[in-house]
């Protein structure tokens, strides 16, 4: 009879974390930036159809990096949870915090259960408030940890250098167009030099608190994006 090798719990968790981190580091980055009228997401995404940034509910949006099938599942689960809650109670009872908690529990349980491979994803959940002080941005990692972000944040392959650039150039109360230009420059920034990302490979979406409709989520098409980037 064969005996399994003993692996310490520390080592087991470290291996699983390394596995997840490696998967996430292969992908391109997503940036979230708070601006005067809301929260902006910009990601490098060669596909026009497979989104990394999506609407969850009236004031809540979702952005992810990592394995598409895994974060797509989480996105759909989030839409289902939000719509179910909004239908059984009221639209105002759907909150970003509730959604972030559900994601955290799900990712955490999957990460620490021996039977499943950990999800190779990292997620932003953002909720836009009536004022910028009430905006909330949560970052969720593969192991179910939740962090509160303020002002700006980046995740994905080049997250560190992108975040460094944002830290140097970000200021509060940017206009939307300034925020878009800052985010695009940050995505193109790396230690070895800056590059220009083609407009067609950028995905831009935002939550706009000034939008009169209930649903605050909007996407930007590439024509408008070219115009905004040329305006710098």
């Amino acid at each position: 009879m064969s005996m399994p090798f003993y692996v310490s719990p520390e080592q087991l968790m470290k291996d699983r974390a390394d596995f997840a981190r490696k998967g996430i580091a292969r992908g391109r980055s997503v940036v979230v930036v708070q601006y005067a009228d809301g929260v902006l997401f910009v990601s490098e995404n060669a596909s026009q159809a497979l989104h990394k940034v999506s609407e969850i509910y009236d004031r809540i949006a979702f952005a992810a990096v990592g394995r598409y099938n895994e974060f797509e599942n989480l996105r759909i689960a989030g839409v289902r949870l939000a719509d179910l809650r909004g239908y059984s109670y009221d639209r105002r009872d759907v909150t970003g915090r509730g959604l972030a908690n559900a994601y955290a529990q799900t990712l955490g349980t999957i990460f620490s259960s021996g039977g499943e491979k950990p999800y190779e994803v990292e997620i932003f959940v953002a909720e836009v408030g009536d004022t910028s002080e009430e905006d909330q941005i949560y970052r969720l990692t593969y192991d179910g940890q939740v962090a509160d972000e303020h002002g700006f944040a980046a995740m994905g392959g080049d997250a560190e250098s992108v975040a460094t650039y944002l830290k140097e150039h970000y200021r509060p109360e940017l206009t939307r167009d300034e925020a878009i230009r800052l985010a695009v420059q940050a995505l193109g920034h790396s230690e070895s030099g800056d590059r220009t990302i083609p407009v067609t490979e950028l995905e831009v979406a935002w939550l706009d608190r000034t939008r009169p409709q209930q649903r605050k989520f909007r996407r930007l098409d590439s024509d408008s994006l070219s115009g905004i980037l040329a305006g710098s």
């Binding site: 797509e72 949870l81 799900t106």
Partner: peptide, 17 residues
Amino acid sequence: ARGSSGDARLPDVFLTP
């Protein structure tokens, strides 16, 4: 929103495409 086992994980039906 609760899993059958009592944890707060999203139930499988939410995550099933």
